[in-house]
Design a protein around this nucleic acid. Structure first.
Length: 300
DNA sequence: CCCTGTCAAGTCACG
DNA sequence: CGTGACTTGACAGGG
């Protein structure tokens, strides 16, 4: 099992998600920012390797305004050598990569302009992964989207829109149960229609589900990942005590995590785990220690 | 240098 | 009807 965390590292003095304001956009600024972000990504991955963290979510801010019309720069060609170098490091060490476009990416929006912008955003995410040269086990995770007053129709619209996408995008996409609108069961129904793997979010399931146990959920989700998709990716977090419902924990709840790990072990489920915990790599390092106590391998 | 209003993008829930 | 939340503060202008 690989353990990972999303997007940024707070330990090393290097942040790979620098951006700037649209009104201060210049090509020079873009080039400088992307160069810095790529250099940081490299450092973060090296840090992760030293701490046996072989799963990482790359920030959507890697290339600011990547899908915005203001950006006419051929960043793909310009930064190809840097992407290639990072990609080689990823391949060499068996690192798994994911990405998670932000809330503005909506396949099933009623507004077709929103859908079209979302496709451009997905193309950007897929380009990053393609430039790294990572295989189809590197995924872009999406939520189903809005409900717009008619859930069934909105799910159908998601399916129909997804069917129109280029295979280069489709092969990367996975759907994740969210914490308010679309449950695991909804995602599984969409999987049955179009075969897209389901990325199971444990915490979202605990606050928004149709009542399945986590154990049963894992059993249902595992077969949605085909050979070429790699082992299932899971998102893990827990409730921050004393805060509003659905707020992610500041730091890992070790008792809760151990219980989850035991469930996974009993099922003999091979999977990769993304820890969506506020203190990021600090909790991820603790999680690695827990896994080792439970006899898991964290290297590939 | 510090302070703080605002930031590309959408949707829903809460008050 | 305005605001906060989402996975995450930090950019940038003005004092």
């Amino acid at each position: 099992m690989r353990i990972g965390y999303p997007c940024i590292n707070r330990t090393i003095d290097c942040k790979g998600d620098h951006t700037f304001r649209l009104h201060s956009y210049t090509e020079e600024r873009l080039i400088a920012t992307v160069a810095e972000n790529l250099a940081c990504l490299q450092q973060i991955l090296a840090f992760n390797l030293r701490h046996e963290l072989l799963f990482f979510r790359i920030t959507s801010d890697l290339v600011p305004f990547a899908s915005h019309p203001v950006n006419q720069f051929e960043w793909q060609a310009h930064f190809q050598p840097q992407f290639l170098e990072i990609g080689q490091f990823i391949a060499e060490h068996g690192i798994r990569i994911s990405m998670h476009p932000d809330q503005f990416t909506l396949i099933n929006s009623l507004d077709t302009a929103v859908f079209e912008r979302s496709v451009k955003e997905l193309e950007y995410h897929a380009e990053v992964l393609d430039l790294l040269g990572v295989d189809t086990s590197a995924k872009i995770q999406l939520h189903v989207g809005g409900i717009y007053g008619e859930k069934g129709k909105s799910m159908q619209r998601f399916v129909k829109r997804l069917e129109t996408l280029d295979e280069r995008l489709r092969r990367r996409l996975v759907i994740e149960n969210d914490d308010r609108l679309y449950t695991l069961r909804d995602c599984l129904r969409i999987h049955e229609e179009i075969g897209i793997p389901v990325l199971f979010d444990v915490f979202h399931h605990e606050v928004n589900s149709s009542g399945e146990t986590v154990r049963d959920a894992l059993i249902m989700v595992a077969p949605t990942w085909a050979q070429e998709d790699g082992v299932p990716m899971l998102d893990y977090s827990s409730q921050e005590p004393g805060e509003r419902a659905r707020k992610h924990a500041e730091t890992i709840d070790l008792a809760h995590f151990q219980q989850f790990v035991e469930t996974v072990r009993d099922l003999h489920l091979d999977c990769d785990l993304m820890l969506e915990i506020k203190d990021k790599e600090k909790s991820a390092v603790k999680a690695v220690a827990v896994l080792k106590e439970h006899g898991f391998e964290t290297f590939y």
